[in-house]
Simulated assay, not measured.
Amino acid sequence: MNFFIAFFQTLLVSFIEMLYLVGGMIVVGFILGALERLSNSYLTRAFGPKGVMVTAWIGTPIHEIGHLIQCFIWGHRVSRVRLLQLNHPSGILGFVEHHYNPNSMYQQVGNFFIGLGPIFSGIGSLILGMYFLVPQSFLAFKTEVEQHIQFQQLDLTLLKTFWESISIICKSLFTIENLINPLFWLFLIMAFSISSHIALSKADIKGSARGLSTIFIVLVLLNIISRLLNWDTYDLIVKLAGYNTYVLAFSSIAILFSFITLLISILLFIIKGRMVR
């Protein structure tokens, strides 16, 4: 009986640790996915299937490059890549076809990060865009994050971090100096295009789920070993998971522009509907 209780506790601790390690990324992925699906639905209803093509020139290659980079990091063999294809019968705008060794736990864990690759490349591209096109805004955002955003546990207090990050990015970006700066408008075009194609496809989510299950198994094995050796891994995992604060802080850029893109899509849908009448 004690064995089953100990095993159940190990499973529970492993699940909580998994949430601490990757929960922030999963939440960001779901939020971005929901916003993109809503935006695309309004654009499609207003302008047909080609309504989402306007932003595909920039957004889709960034999306696929995210998968590609993670494939290289996690040792997957890439067989075919299409960064952008506009006239495919299935409507698929791009893809990365990759293969992995099912006997390699490292490569199996990699499935999770490969699936989430577009989130990393999308957020990274937005940050680089700020750095090169609106450097003063980037510096202001970076400084505010370093001064006011502290490591938090994965709980409801992270919502405060998220709203603070949104406030900081709005305050640093939407200034009078930027409004008269042509590079700022170039950044906006890039940001809207990337945010419109940052969400994960069903295939991406399926691949990530395979990797997530492997991460859970690794944590279970780690906790079993730690129990046998009287090690405490929980506190270590919680401290490592402090990066979730920064995941939310920097992902707020993508979430903000995804939300603005949704508002623009709704506005275009309303305008198109009234013109038809």
Score class of each variant (00 low, 15 high):
Gln9Arg: 09
Ile58Leu: 09
His197Glu: 13
Ile205Glu: 07
Gly94Arg: 03
Val247Glu: 04
Val22Arg: 02
His88Ala: 12
Met1Thr: 00
Arg210Gln: 15
Leu236Val: 06
Ser193Ile: 12
Tyr100Glu: 02
Gly24Tyr: 08
Thr157Lys: 08
Phe3Trp: 14
Ile5Pro: 04
Ser196Gln: 09
Phe184Ile: 02
Ser39His: 00
Ile92Arg: 07
Leu248Gly: 01
Phe4Val: 06
Phe95Glu: 10
Leu159Lys: 07
Ile16Tyr: 07
Gln153Lys: 14
Lys50Arg: 14
Gly207Trp: 08
Val109Tyr: 04
Ile224Gly: 00
Ala241Ile: 06
Lys202Glu: 15
Leu133Glu: 06
Leu236Ala: 05
Arg82Tyr: 01
Met25Thr: 09
Ser104Glu: 12
Ser125Gln: 04
Ser226Ala: 13
Leu156Gln: 12
Met1Ile: 00
Ile114Ala: 11
Phe216Tyr: 15
Leu116Phe: 15
Arg210Met: 15
Ser193Lys: 13
Glu17Pro: 02
Val78Tyr: 01
Glu177Ile: 00
Phe7Val: 09
Lys239Cys: 13
Leu221Thr: 12
His76Thr: 05
Arg37Ile: 02
His148Leu: 06
Gly122Tyr: 03
Ser196Phe: 09
Leu159Trp: 10
Ala34Thr: 09
Leu38Trp: 13
Ile16Thr: 05
Ser208Cys: 10
Asn87Tyr: 05
Asn244Tyr: 07
Arg227Thr: 01
Ile119Trp: 07
Ser201Leu: 00
Phe216Glu: 13
Ser208Val: 08
Trp185Ala: 01
Asp155Gln: 13
